[in-house]
Structures are given as C-alpha cells and as structure tokens.
C-alpha cells in the first residue's frame, strides 16, 4: 500500500531524512517512533506529498507521490490524515467540517454527506456536538472530530502525525480508543506517536528513527523485547520507565 524507498530530504543544506525505506502493507498498522527532531513527522508528511522530497521514491497504492506532475490532490482525497493540533476548520460547525470535502471533493449529495457525518460522529460518541464550532470542544473531542473528518472520505489508509501529543493526559485515551477500534477494523495505518502502550497493543511493526534515518524496522514484539541498536535501547529505557 505504502512503499517508501531510499527517501532523502534536505532543508537547504540540512539533511532531515537520510535514505529512509519502509513499507506498510494493506491492513497493517505501523508505528513510527523516535526522539524529537528525528524526522518522523517529516517522513509521514512526505507520504501524501505535504512535504516534497528531493531523492528516492514513495509509492502509495500504485501512485508515485514524488513524481513530477503527480496528481496529489486525487491521491490525498484517498488518504486520511490526522494532525497533532487537530486543524479543524474553525469557521465551520462540526457537521460542515465533516461534509465539506465529501461534497466538494467526492461530489456526494448533501444528504449522503450528512448521513455519513452522523454515522461517524455517533461512532466516536459526539453526536450531540454536531452543531458546535470546533472552538467549543475539548482537545480530545476535537481530535475525534478530526479522525471522523478523515474517515468521512472513505480513505484507503490513514496517517496519524502525533495525534495525542497536544492533548491533556486524561483525554489521550478517548482518542487512542478510537484508533484501536480503527485498527481492529482492518484500517491501514501509519502512526507517528510516543504512546508505546498503543504501539504494543495494535502495531504490527515499529519503525524507530533517529537523526533522519530509520534505525530499526521490526515486528512490534521483537522491537520491545530485543531492540538491536543502542539508540533504540536507550530510547526505550527512558520512555518505558514511567
């Protein structure tokens, strides 16, 4: 589904990604973790072309993202993305946040779009907030709306860019629960996160990054029980002791 091959990216002279290669198969959940500044978010933003890469290639469901003249708009409509800071459209109600792209990008009828929005909001327990603006919701609620907005497009895969990093601790679980459910429904997911409990529970593989390179890319159990690199050992010892 997602194939990243020898991807390198520079900001000016500074190399942020070095020769990154990994794969996410259909139905697979891959967690990307690593210390801050290691290039996790940049990598995931390259997958749907929000960040251009200078070398290497990314193939998403047969579409070459890095190719010149690639139809990114069409591709992005089929890949859901959830951001650290939710990024809901602040001038629209929750209903419009979920309906706009369905109607304008997928050409669905108003009734169809609203029905879809209601179903999804019901699933994340936010039906009663459908007429509110995002500013009136808590962080956890906003992130659940953001996930629903992405799902409303019936995506073939979902990208999560630190979906719980901006949340109060008590709201993290309500968002993770939605993601766990999504994973068990068989959604293809690539998740940048520091939530190691989540990774352990649902990830098929863990990709560990440091300084712009992929240091480890292994099945979840192996990664947690016997990390190969010193860098990953060090990272895990710091993050798991809490």
């Amino acid at each position: 589904m997602i194939e990243i091959e020898n991807l390198s990216k520079w900001y000016g002279d500074f190399q942020v990604l070095t020769d990154c290669s990994t794969k996410v198969a259909k139905g697979e959940v891959v967690v990307v973790c690593g210390p801050s500044g290691s290039g996790k978010s940049t990598l995931i933003k390259c997958v749907n072309g929000l960040e251009p890469a200078q070398k290497g290639s990314i193939l998403v469901d047969g579409t070459e993202v890095t190719a010149r003249g690639a139809d990114l708009t069409k591709l992005r409509a089929r890949i859901g993305m959830v951001f650290q800071h939710f990024e809901l459209y602040p001038h629209m109600t929750v209903r419009e946040n979920l309906c706009l792209a369905q109607q304008k990008v997928l050409d669905r009828s108003r009734d169809e779009a609203v029905a879809k929005a209601e179903t999804l909001l019901n699933r994340v327990g936010l039906t009663q907030h459908i007429d509110k603006h995002p500013g009136a919701l808590s962080g956890g609620q906003q992130q659940r709306v953001a996930i629903s907005r992405a799902l409303a497009m019936d995506p073939i895969a979902m990208l999560f860019d630190e979906p719980t990093s901006a949340l109060d601790p008590e709201m993290i679980n309500e968002v993770l629960d939605v993601m766990v459910e999504l994973a068990s429904d068989g959604m293809t997911m690539m998740v940048v996160t520091h939530e190691m409990g989540f990774a352990r529970k649902v990830a098929d593989r863990v990709v560990f990054m440091d300084a712009g390179a992929i240091v480890e890319d292994r099945p979840t159990e192996q990664f947690f029980s016997a990390p190969e690199s010193d860098r990953a050992k060090d990272f895990l010892s710091k993050i798991l002791n809490h």
Binding site: K45, N48, A77, E87, A101, L159
Partner: peptide
C-alpha cells in the same frame, strides 16, 4: 496542510 490532506 489539513485542507490539502483532506483532498482540496
């Protein structure tokens, strides 16, 4: 970015 990611 969110808007582009949404398919617009």
């Amino acid at each position: 970015n969110a808007s582009y990611a949404n398919g617009f």
